[in-house]
Nucleic acid binder design. Structure first.
Lengths: 220, 220
DNA sequence: TTTAAAGTGTAACAGTTGTTACAGCTTCAA
DNA sequence: TTGAAGCTGTAACAACTGTTACACTTTAAA
């Protein structure tokens, strides 16, 4: 799975004067070896840390939507940017390197200064956090639905909103089960029953909504 | 349950020149009657909307942690501020007034201008969103745990981290069940079993962790 | 084309949670 | 003190999901 936040790509060149950022920006870059714990749960988060190269793992919710467990984060991406300004500004999980990494560190005060002086920086920061929030909210809605059929209904109705009543998913059944946080055979069983009841039709990764009304009733 | 975001209280006086905000701030105030739908799911969110007086209901996750269903939002609080800067900047739910309300509307461009010119405004905005993200993340972790005993373990270990191994909750069993999104008798059964196994002790709302190791094993 | 790996459909059974119901206990106000 | 309302403990049963296993199909590489 890819793990891309396009809006952060500019930061590859941060501070080198090549992208409009001020050359007097205060920052530091740290290099870490493989399998090193670079942040521990509870560590104070008083700077914006951006993973510039390499990859790390954490235990937070994954970007591609799978449940908990381990999340692999690939550069370039900020590490827990939302916690920089939160009341309890501490890392919620351990962060461990998977290979040699390069981490750009911008102190909180400097981030605030950049935000006020560099509108683009601010926009990117805001957009990233906004997208993250939206993602989390959506994930939460999905997890709040208790039944598997309900999760399927929520997911399919969301897809149908963006596309038509027929669409192709880019996940197979196993990945979908992971995404929902349920067992694969259980998902298959629920899908079978919904097909049996004439609510949906499935052909490989192509899904068709046949009875939107019944689908909505499953959301309870 | 209270529903307070202290950092937004300043906005009661926004634009009236009494709190340091520029008197040339662009904004508008709208009044709505009772039981009026002021935002619909899918509506474009191109301004920061702050509920100044009154209360509304939505269907998002609740601020005090209870699951889905209806959320009651009391003034003063911003309405879905995170969606202002997200890629898909549309309201995720319907917003309906419960009484007469007053909504302050600041256009997105003006919000950006305020952010760059009023550091305090920016800080408040960032802090609010950060806290929201942290809240959602925590909620997501809790919901990702499938077993009731696991949820209890997660919750108690979190409490123990902030306080000692003995602490008093401000929720009764029924509220705790809502918080976990499980049925009350099911929660009672799980608690009974954990007491039986000598993992915890419970006296009214006072909880004591007796075996932290076993508690951690339940987190799987 | 062949073959191994991955993905899917299905079934039987176990395990957990929800539902409903009821009795005992607390709390708080009249 | 005495209700009344709310909270808690518990039980029997229903409903749903997970686990495990296996056969079949599809995919992709050799």
């Amino acid at each position: 799975m890819k793990n891309i936040d396009p809006e952060w790509n500019n930061f590859r060149n941060i501070g080198d004067g090549g992208d409009g950022f001020p050359s007097d920006m205060q920052y530091s870059i740290k290099f870490h070896g493989k399998n090193e714990v670079i942040f521990r749960q509870g560590d104070l988060c008083d700077a914006l840390n951006i993973l510039m190269t390499g990859s790390v793992k954490t235990e937070m919710i994954t970007e591609n939507g799978n449940l908990m467990g381990i999340e692999i984060i690939n550069a370039p991406r900020p590490l827990a940017p939302a916690f920089l300004f939160s009341g309890n500004n501490r890392f919620p999980v351990d962060v461990t390197t998977l290979e040699e990494v390069e981490v750009l560190r911008i102190p909180k005060d400097e981030v605030i200064r950049l935000m006020t002086t560099q509108p683009e920086f601010m926009q990117q920061f805001l957009t990233h956090n906004a997208n993250r929030t939206q993602f989390l909210t959506n994930r939460l809605q999905l997890l709040s639905i208790k039944t598997i059929k309900g999760k399927i209904a929520h997911f399919l109705l969301e897809q149908a909103g963006e596309q038509g009543d027929t669409f192709t998913l880019n996940r197979n059944q196993t990945e979908l089960a992971d995404f929902f946080g349920v067992a694969r055979p259980s998902l298959a069983r629920s899908l079978s029953e919904m097909i049996e009841e004439g609510i949906i039709a499935v052909n490989k990764k192509k899904y068709t909504i046949l009875d939107k009304k019944k689908l909505r009733e499953l959301l309870v």
